[in-house]
Nucleic acid binder design. Structure first.
Lengths: 248, 248
DNA sequence: CGACGAATTGAACCTATTCAAAGGGTGTGG
DNA sequence: CCACACCCTTTGAATAGGTTCAATTCGTCG
């Protein structure tokens, strides 16, 4: 009776067969950039993708590895990270099912810009970059949809640059929490739970800070009634207030 | 006799007729994303572009304006900037002839992500975003070329995020100088001149610093023999050394 | 329960900012 | 053509925001 765990975040352990053939077609059909395909075309495209599984923490590829494949998250969550010589890591994003990552440019000169890591137990679908390029060539709708998603990511990256350049820590943290809650938020009685394991270290890597600073600011945000938080989880209590804080 | 000006940077004042019909075809033909077009197609595309002139300092569009057009730099240089409520500006890039900016997404929901400003007297070619989308739909080669350029920009933006997050000022400045010299560098007897007006304030806005800090670091870099610099100009003397410094 | 990793808290330190003042190149108007 | 005014740049001293290091507390899982 009752769960003794305090973490409100659900942690799925996936079995080897969840990422089955049946699931794949359904999944691919939902991808925004494959929406223009007919059922037949979709089935053909499906054959091009290969399934791969990763346990939590496993690395899918490293930054600067030769970039050969485009991946789509099927089950679980994927972390995109960057590294610096000094050992400081940056957490760019946590991807959900349906989001793509990896290489869009064919040819062997390209290298991955980030490291991709399984944030939970994960199943991903991979397609060779050249093959995907052929798909885009034959169907401009796919190319344009991918272009739109990429443009949107460029905009998001520029927004991150803006925040890193011109905002103090507290506002940067608020902005990250607003973004995560919008993307991964799950409504609860009293707040919006960010549905992923999220340590102070993770938040530090998303805001260019140290875990200690994040801890101090989180304490303040809780006092102000903006968020609830515990070990490896965060919930947004006052979205509007947090958004106001983020904008300055 | 002789020029009394000390600035080594060439400052062009363009006349109203330089951006003529004849030049346009030549220019459009050189664009990487229109390379796949035949002469006829190019002439047809050319009709879709309209010419606009701006004097130095004039604003082409503001961030958050409704995004309607895609532009290509024909003559001169264009600054892409961002703003923050606190009044801190960010200088994202200085675009050269042949580079595009503005809107890639049609529809009236989109807004410009940055402010575009004439960094010198400038002539640009503009095309309606919907019309350009039609061009991309009819020729996947164009769409893919634009996708590649956008992907490259996303990579550059993520690199900026990495530098802002994990590197101290000196290394960030070194990295910016390396990038600018690679893009706008003009070989001279003893160094590589960055061919654009570049104040301490500009460099500050590119590295998330203050002009004072830039000044102090520049003094140091000159002492170390890595750069030469004066009022509104910078030249890289030791590219390899500067690159080494940037990487850490 | 016991142990390990995460989170908190405190104090010293450091990098870069802020504010202020002085010096120098540009180009403009007399 | 020269002189002055303007803005860019340099330099200094005080300050602040965030980091670092270290010690302690707390939650979670075996």
């Amino acid at each position: 009776m009752g769960n003794r765990r305090k973490t409100p975040v659900e942690i799925d352990t996936i079995s080897a067969h969840q990422c089955s053939i049946g699931l794949r077609l359904e999944l691919l059909g939902k991808l925004p950039f494959l929406a223009s395909l007919s059922a037949d075309e979709l089935a053909a495209a499906n054959k091009r993708f290969k399934t791969r599984d990763f346990v939590e923490g496993a690395t899918i590829y490293f930054a600067d590895d030769p970039a050969t494949h485009l991946y789509v998250v099927a089950i679980g969550q994927v972390r995109l990270m960057q590294h610096s010589p000094a050992g400081k890591d940056i957490l760019l994003d946590v991807l959900q099912p349906g989001e793509f990552f990896g290489s869009l440019m064919p040819g062997d000169d390209g290298r991955y810009a980030e490291t991709a890591q399984a944030h939970t137990d994960t199943c991903i679908l991979g397609i060779n970059a050249d093959e995907f390029r052929r798909l885009m060539t034959s169907d401009p709708g796919i190319a344009l949809a991918v272009l739109d998603l990429t443009t949107e990511r460029l905009r998001a990256a520029q927004e991150t640059v803006r925040r890193l350049s011109a905002y103090p820590m507290e506002q940067r943290l608020a902005a990250v929490l607003v973004r995560l809650a919008g993307k991964l938020g799950e409504q609860r009685a009293d707040d919006l739970l960010i549905q992923t394991r999220l340590s102070r270290e993770d938040l530090a890597q998303m805001t260019a800070a140290t875990p200690e600073t994040i801890s101090r600011i989180m304490t303040q945000l809780q006092k102000d009634g903006l968020v609830n938080s515990g070990r490896q989880w965060v919930a947004v209590k006052d979205m509007a207030g947090l958004r106001r804080l983020a904008e300055g």
